[in-house]
Design a protein around this nucleic acid. Sequence first.
DNA 1: GGATCATTATGACGATTCGTCAAAAATGAC
DNA 2: GTCATTTTTGACGAATCGTCATAATGATCC
Lengths: 279, 279
Amino acid sequence: MTKEHELSQHMINEQDASSSSHGCPHGGLKGLLGKSLAKIGLSKSEQKKADREEELVDLAVSILNEDGFGGMSLEKLAAQSRYSKGTIYNHFSSKEDCLSALCIRAVSSIMTFFKRALEFKGCSREKAVAVHYAYQLYARMQPTLFMAVLSSKAPGVREKTSVERMQLMDALELEINAFSDQMFRDALEDGSLVLPAHLSIETLSFSNWAMSFGTNALANNATEATAVNRLNPNTVLLQNISILLDGMNWQPLSKDWNYQETWQRVEDEIFSDDIQLIK
Amino acid sequence: MTKEHELSQHMINEQDASSSSHGCPHGGLKGLLGKSLAKIGLSKSEQKKADREEELVDLAVSILNEDGFGGMSLEKLAAQSRYSKGTIYNHFSSKEDCLSALCIRAVSSIMTFFKRALEFKGCSREKAVAVHYAYQLYARMQPTLFMAVLSSKAPGVREKTSVERMQLMDALELEINAFSDQMFRDALEDGSLVLPAHLSIETLSFSNWAMSFGTNALANNATEATAVNRLNPNTVLLQNISILLDGMNWQPLSKDWNYQETWQRVEDEIFSDDIQLIK
DNA sequence: GGATCATTATGACGATTCGTCAAAAATGAC
DNA sequence: GTCATTTTTGACGAATCGTCATAATGATCC
């Protein structure tokens, strides 16, 4: 509850600060960060409403973590909050709308994690590895929220989400896409990656995302009978990603570089605080 | 509704027939197929109950397709069926238990698709491509059921699922894992694949699955803002998988073989009937 | 066939959640 | 202080959940 809150609180306002303070050698990504969600120019009452929504989403997250997906209800949210049901429905047009709000919270948090990962000092492929580390870390810290992002894309959920929220969600998604694309553009620029025949940046970017998402989703929902259980949960993602990036011929290849060490350095140098929270 | 029904109806009984009739040159997979779910030795009343359960799952699938995930209720299932609520609850201990039953149906269907894909005549990597084609085809034919498999792994759902059904689900999952592993074992045996340093069969098998799952899940839930929309939905999976299998150095590499043609041949030679249904 | 017992099916029930809406309360303008 | 506007409230009807006493069905024995 407070954990998630701390992660995302005022995140948007901190974006400019963080993205300009880290010493990213490639300028490409800078221009894409922040701005799109600026909470500027709000009247006093609008600000008040926005604050309360933040508070409600915080509470919803804690309920989600506590009672799982099916256990989340606006009734319960109202009961546990300082407000009545009517007020809750004044913020969220439906349960699904609230789920979408949670999804936005999740994607925003992931985005900040990504930006922190980018601060890692290393070659372009190492930076990509760092971003995957961040994704995996978030998936482990907030498993339910991580999965909520996917569920919120189901038709039934989208239909019941307010248009403004859907626009916000789509904007965030574009931002994430742009972020991912830019990683590959940077790699092409510095020569460590050459576009394979018949493949576009979009294809590489998507395959990269799909692998990371698939691995985290399956690892998250592992049962005793699952293939994941036979593997080391800490490095499954690194291994999968290594095979994929080798397939793209992204230099240096995994046989020529100890990415295991990179992985560990990302944990120690960037996310050591968050790792403590898990344990 | 009837579509899905036809797919899975008596599937288990047909397993032996299909796996012994196709001309698979590698014998490795044969031994693993079927058996594990044999519906033998049922008394008359047990048989009757099993039949009715099949009927109810069919109906549940159609409701799921019609009203989506949140719209599925046992109340509705009872209303649309010939039975009363009490009887429904006699079959499914809860809504979540019913969801797990749907998941079992889905995985079983996917398994039959996989086995059909294996009938494709070609080298081991082509067979793997065929299996991915089958997975993607199922995901497109039954998008909601496809996603249901993942949701049924959530803790909240598992908790409310009857133990027998969970055992059945775990057994199915093991079967799928074994199937996947065997594909890689066959490839190692015929020499087209060599185990990369520090990687196990389990790792390769899982990365293969994760990529396919991730791609299909994301492609299924694509919105206008998604990266998937920029790509050709018919071949996204083939492209992603090609990069991955190249990364494993599975011969022949995509630069030395036209897998696009393989992909098309799988569609034409194995799944042409099912493709018709989508259109 | 009929009596007896075991199994299965039924739908009424209380509890919970959904989303709505008229009335009450709070806010703000003058 | 008064009035108008906005916001908050919780009671409401509908839908769903899962349970359980009762009714119906079927099996077994005489």
